[in-house]
Design a binder for these strands. Structure first.
Length: 427
DNA sequence: CTTGCCGGGAG
DNA sequence: CTCCCGGCAAG
């Protein structure tokens, strides 16, 4: 046999994933313990997948795409949802086990330190803000682990802050614009951004009064409806973006939902309206507003239906849940990222890819995205998917039972007769 | 409920 | 080894 390599029956990867559970005593293993071990190990095995390096032909390589998705989704999590572990990490002022260039979590939130961090921007000083590298030239091969972790923890550190003083804010805003511009012009894949094809620093910063009036002075015709049924999620591909693509940014703040077409506008809106309303300067770090808007891309089609005003938010919904796509669409978003998960039948991926739990080919390029939404909830969806393992989908493939029927059991292949995995109609 | 199939036992 | 089946999990 292959000890410690089987997850148990119906393992998430079709019995192809190793189990981290030691096999205590085969003969004395009761059903209950077996079942319990399965349940536990499934969840856990996604965390620490133990896939022996190619010593078993049945082993499948676990794709990296979930992480990529995770990064690209730029998961945003409210403090409420912060895992306790990370919470304790934050509370203890411990530097998280992350590349500090991406994220540092300091406990005190010293404003002086913040300033230092902003000025050096790539320094390794402890800061309560997210330390976004000012320039990462040609780092397209950024470690996805680091990115993922950075995204998670940076999002966690950016819980809704109360406010910031205006004077301090301007300084922060300036540097924020600076870094933001660099980041936008940077490769989008490195930061989870979808870079908007805008020249860096193109618009001059508007006057503070204009900023203050930004909420009401927003052109109302920029309201875009997030047609979540048609939301497709892709990896950033800015170069392929067509000219007809409209980009808008929706504020994810609870009870807001404002949509602006300008990145700076939405940042300014978030910063001014939501982040920096009271005091507490240190909570309002630059780049924090990145986590409170979501980019909406819409192809230039005459499909606008709704009035431009933002939809009335449901009072019971948080920003996360409000921005959450419907289960269907988010599922599709996730699935579209993972070739090993079957797409829903109504989308453009060919049905052949539906059985891609076997990890055959990467997902086909989908050429008809109508709109895209970077939203908080995709990360959560990803987490849910992580805990709901990639199971062996009941495929369309015929099985002996289906083909011949129970009455012709003698025609079945032997494994089918033995209630094993069918080997005649492999899918 | 059905279906696929893993784990395990009997011979 | 073959053969069979309990039982789990997904649909």
């Amino acid at each position: 046999m292959m000890p410690n390599t089987r997850l148990g029956k119906r393992s998430p990867f079709g019995s192809l994933v190793g189990s981290s559970c030691p096999e205590p005593n085969k003969t004395s293993t009761t059903k209950a313990t077996r079942a319990g071990q399965q349940g536990i190990s499934r969840v856990r095995d996604h965390g620490d997948l133990k896939v022996p390096a190619g010593n078993n032909h049945k082993q499948k390589k676990i794709p990296e795409s979930p992480r990529i998705l995770f990064v690209s989704c730029q998961m945003k999590m409210s403090r409420r949802r912060r895992p306790r572990l990370i919470d304790s990490c934050l509370s203890q002022s411990q530097c998280c086990l992350l590349p500090q260039a991406y994220f540092q979590c300091g406990g005190a939130g010293d404003s002086q330190t913040d300033n230092v961090a902003q000025s050096t921007c790539c320094s390794r000083s402890i800061s309560s803000c997210i330390d976004v590298p000012r320039s990462r030239t040609a780092q397209q091969e950024v470690d996805m682990d680091e990115l993922m972790a950075a995204m998670v923890l940076s999002s966690l550190s950016c819980s809704p802050p109360p406010a910031l003083q205006v004077s301090a804010h301007k300084q922060t805003a300036a540097s924020s614009m600076d870094c933001g511009a660099v980041e936008l012009s940077d490769n989008s894949s490195s930061s989870g951004y979808w870079s908007v094809n805008r020249g860096p620093r193109s618009p001059a910063p508007p006057s503070p009064t204009a900023e203050a009036n930004g909420r009401s002075a927003t052109p109302p015709d920029e309201g875009l409806d997030m047609d979540l049924d048609q939301v497709l999620f892709e990896e950033p591909a800015p170069r392929k973006r067509r000219n007809s693509l409209k980009v808008a940014y929706q504020c994810l703040w609870p009870s807001c939902g404002k949509v602006l077409t300008s990145l700076m506008g939405i940042k300014r809106h978030i910063r001014m309206v939501h982040l920096c309303q009271g005091g507490e300067h240190e909570r309002c770090s630059h780049s924090e507003e990145d986590f409170y808007y979501s980019e909406i891309n819409q192809w230039d089609e005459p499909r606008r239906q709704s009035p431009p005003s933002p939809p009335p938010p449901s009072p019971s919904c948080s920003a996360l849940s409000r921005s959450a796509p419907s289960p269907c669409s988010s599922l599709w978003q996730v699935q579209s990222e993972h070739s090993y998960q079957a797409p829903p039948p109504s989308h453009t991926v060919s049905p052949a890819a539906a059985t891609s739990c076997r990890l055959t080919a990467p997902p086909t390029s989908r050429q008809e995205p109508v709109s895209r939404v970077r939203s908080v909830s995709v990360g959560e969806q990803w987490l849910q998917h992580q805990s709901a393992p990639c199971r062996r989908i009941r495929s369309e493939a015929k099985k002996c039972r289906k083909v011949y029927g129970i009455e012709h059991r003698e025609l079945w292949c032997t494994p089918c007769r033995w209630k094993k995995a069918c080997q005649r109609f492999l899918d």
